[in-house]
Amino acid sequence: MQNGLREIHVSRITDTIANLCIDSCHDLPADVEEHLRQAQERERSPLGKEILGQILENATLARTQMIPICQDTGFTAVIVELGQDVRLVGGDLYAAINEGVRRGYKEGLLRLSVLDHPLRRKNTGDNTPAAIHVEIVPGDKITLMLMPKGGGCENMSALRILKPSDGEEGVKKFVVETVANAGPNACPPMVVGVGIGGTFDLCAYLAKKALFRSLGQHSPDPDNARLEKDLLELCNKTGLGPAGLGGDTTALFVHVESYPCHITALPVAVNTQCHAARHKEAIV
């Protein structure tokens, strides 16, 4: 403690990130597993029910045999909630996070899926860099939230700036359209992250951030929470079902995050997440 600041050496961040990479790719979070189990009980399509059973079996096998849940161990998304009373020492925060990713993917025998440039397309050889977002928050702790985000589902995500007159119905229509269009490519049952409001860039971030929330945890905003429930029902009426082969369970949960927006705009972003909805967090 110096001038009321808590000193944290960046090596602790590197160690934590490395562990989170390995852990998240092998250990499906309890909230996701619980929702899959409930869905398996409710699912009326026999094939859908069988597929949900296989997804649960896959999770157990991954955890006990240390085989990644999915071979696509993702582009590593990291949200850092950095307490404003923390003073980082020993190096650069972003470099420390990327070092953690490098180490985690090597030691964890995870697949390397990151290319150096979208057109030159050469593998970076260590899954870096991560997609890092930093939010400054009160307090003297650092919360590290990590999600190895697979390409199949990420690629089916979409953003559209609606007209304010499109209203809630317009938002619902766009979200359900995006989920239906994602279809089997996004490995349903999906978790759907929805961002509404903000600016073009912020709206997309809200949708991603929504996916970091624990499944079953509704938005504290009552209108958003109602929208989450309505959207889940609408997604599950598409008939897409597990693996897109028909059934009741197209989505496990819908999370909505919102932000104030401009008088002219109603931005909506939908970030689709596959059933291997891997996310872990740790506090340093």
Partner: peptide, 13 residues
């Protein structure tokens, strides 16, 4: 043919 996506561990067996 489709294999079920996201069953990387199970299919490896």
């Amino acid at each position: 043919f489709a294999a079920i996506g996201g069953l990387g561990a199970l299919l490896s067996q």
